[in-house]
Amino acid sequence: MAGEFQRPDPLVFDENIAENWHILEQEFDIFIAAAHRDKPRRTQAFILLNLADPEAIERERSFVYAQELTYEI
């Protein structure tokens, strides 16, 4: 199904990264809503990394994520 939709262009790191990220984010949201809205969030995150480009994957590997907090009521 995803082949029917235009994929976002990869993220460009050698120009205005903030603006390029904003554009990719908007295009990705449209792409996911159109082609992959039924997929789990984790799968959607992997799709984002795949579309962003190999450099984005390499940079993501250096991220340190906080554990998800759960609250009991």
Results as ranks from 00 to 15, higher is better:
E4S: 13
F5W: 15
F5Y: 15
Q6H: 14
Q6G: 12
Q6T: 13
R7T: 14
P8E: 08
P8D: 10
P8W: 12
P8G: 12
P8T: 09
P8I: 07
D9V: 07
D9S: 14
P10T: 11
P10W: 13
P10N: 12
P10V: 13
P10C: 12
P10K: 10
P10A: 11
L11P: 08
L11N: 07
L11D: 07
L11H: 08
L11T: 07
L11R: 08
L11M: 14
V12Y: 12
V12W: 07
V12A: 12
F13C: 11
F13Q: 10
D14G: 08
D14I: 07
D14S: 13
D14E: 14
D14R: 10
D14M: 07
E15H: 03
N16H: 10
N16E: 08
N16T: 02
N16K: 09
I17K: 06
I17R: 08
A18D: 11
A18M: 06
E19K: 08
E19Q: 10
E19T: 06
E19W: 03
N20F: 01
N20R: 05
N20L: 00
W21A: 11
W21C: 09
W21M: 10
W21Y: 14
H22V: 02
H22T: 08
I23C: 02
I23A: 02
I23S: 02
L24S: 03
L24W: 04
L24Q: 01
E25M: 06
Q26V: 06
Q26S: 08
Q26T: 05
Q26D: 03
E27F: 02
E27R: 15
F28V: 01
F28K: 02
I30M: 01
F31C: 01
F31L: 03
F31A: 04
F31Y: 15
I32C: 07
I32K: 09
I32N: 03
I32Q: 05
A33K: 07
A34V: 00
A34I: 00
A34N: 04
A34Q: 07
A35R: 06
A35H: 03
H36V: 02
H36N: 12
H36C: 14
H36E: 09
H36I: 02
R37C: 08
R37V: 06
K39P: 00
K39S: 07
K39R: 13
P40V: 06
P40Q: 08
R41D: 04
R41K: 05
R42G: 01
R42N: 01
T43P: 00
T43I: 09
T43Y: 11
Q44A: 08
Q44F: 07
Q44I: 05
A45I: 02
A45T: 01
F46V: 00
F46I: 00
F46G: 00
F46P: 00
I47R: 05
I47N: 03
L48V: 05
L49N: 02
L49V: 04
L49Q: 04
N50D: 05
L51C: 05
L51G: 02
L51V: 05
A52V: 03
D53E: 11
D53P: 00
D53S: 15
D53Q: 10
P54L: 07
A56F: 13
A56S: 15
I57V: 14
I57P: 01
I57D: 05
I57M: 13
E58C: 10
E58L: 13
E58R: 15
E58F: 09
E58I: 09
E58A: 14
R59W: 11
E60A: 15
E60L: 10
E60R: 09
E60F: 15
